[in-house]
Design a protein around this nucleic acid. Sequence first.
DNA 1: TTTTCAAATAGTGCATACAAAATTGATTAT
DNA 2: ATAATCAATTTTGTATGCACTATTTGAAAA
Lengths: 234, 234
Amino acid sequence: MTAERSAPVPAEDTFPIARSSLAASVADHLRAMIVQGTLPPGTRVQVAALAASLAVSATPVREALIILAEDRLVELLPNRGARVLPYTADEALALFEVMAALEALAARLATMRMHAEDCDELERRHAAMVAHHRRRERQAYFAVNNEIHAAVLTLSGNPDLVATHARLELRGRRGRYNAIVDDARWDQAMHEHALLMEAMRCRDAEAAASIWQTHVTNTGLAVAHALHRALDPA
Amino acid sequence: MTAERSAPVPAEDTFPIARSSLAASVADHLRAMIVQGTLPPGTRVQVAALAASLAVSATPVREALIILAEDRLVELLPNRGARVLPYTADEALALFEVMAALEALAARLATMRMHAEDCDELERRHAAMVAHHRRRERQAYFAVNNEIHAAVLTLSGNPDLVATHARLELRGRRGRYNAIVDDARWDQAMHEHALLMEAMRCRDAEAAASIWQTHVTNTGLAVAHALHRALDPA
DNA sequence: TTTTCAAATAGTGCATACAAAATTGATTAT
DNA sequence: ATAATCAATTTTGTATGCACTATTTGAAAA
């Protein structure tokens, strides 16, 4: 009890991302709606209406829109409010081109810097993913897949790399909800994951970077393809 | 004429980044102060005081701080305002590690995608930079150097790559104002630039990527070194 | 019927006001 | 003397109000 209050500035160096402001909550809410597609591209977001529906005032909604504009999920038009930005196949290609470079760097650094127990943990998750793939458990597969990608990023030991990737991944994820991954691509992705694990096990950083770059690029191609088919019924 | 008015949403695809809001202006002002070091790391930014000194109200200042927090130039502490984030040698290394990967990708793509006249334009700027280096014109050199780096980014044809890099470069620039580049490093940098031009002239994308990665990494090492010496008088 | 223009309408952007939270300083107890 | 407690002050976070800008509507003129 006393300990909690006596420390004058205990959290000076800590990094409590517990952004508990209303604006942050509204931003999270809107972000989820955009990523899931509840707010389709082109939708104009009006502050007053949104504020009313969330039972808050205009100020935190405005601030939330500023945050989303920084993430390039919405566009702020001067004196004309905000609208949800489109997400086309071309944009997905550009996005994954950058993400591939970032994840390749992450794979290289992780392979060089990770400890043995980190690699074991990765192997464990990989095994779990293989099991989900064998049983065709799509949801569980996606979850573990995301964990593995995130783990490689984290093991790079570079916070800016993690943060930069996270921002792009948010937009990249907009496609994955729509993208129906076909079985052929799924099998190929599994193979690429297996190659990464092998490279990391052997501490072959360059091989890990190369295969991971290819893997993310291929994912981008699949997403772009799905986005293209979503608009073009062919 | 009819066409202009009959279309319900004529400016649908335009992208007028003419962000002429007060918040944006305040953000630019603060950004410059932080990058130049006028607001040193650790400085606590108080909304009311800043608003008074800029003769605006609290609202746009708050919004500007949100923008800068997204750029990781300031940290928003819940109910405790904002403070300018520190910039250490370690952070510079992490930052330039990511920027090196991004600029390497840009060099690869630019080499593959640029037109002949783009390459000529680059050569022209490179020649200008060589001249400034020969005459030891530091300011002019820096300006043209930045132009070349920006041009390579732009020639990649990937807007997300440009935007992602720009965000990091902003923080990276914090160091360059302090960093006193010694002549040895300056000469080396010039050599690296020459190698890039040669690789791009020959359309050797992989070589361009490799040398540019090295170049940016070396710049990062120089900046980190300068930051280290700034704190440690050795 | 089509075009032009003005008035009305709607909606953003900024300023101000207020409430909640944190910091500070003084006072009291140990 | 040190530590704890509580009130006063400062500062943030949210709400509200208002002016200005963009858009739409409708009537008048071509």
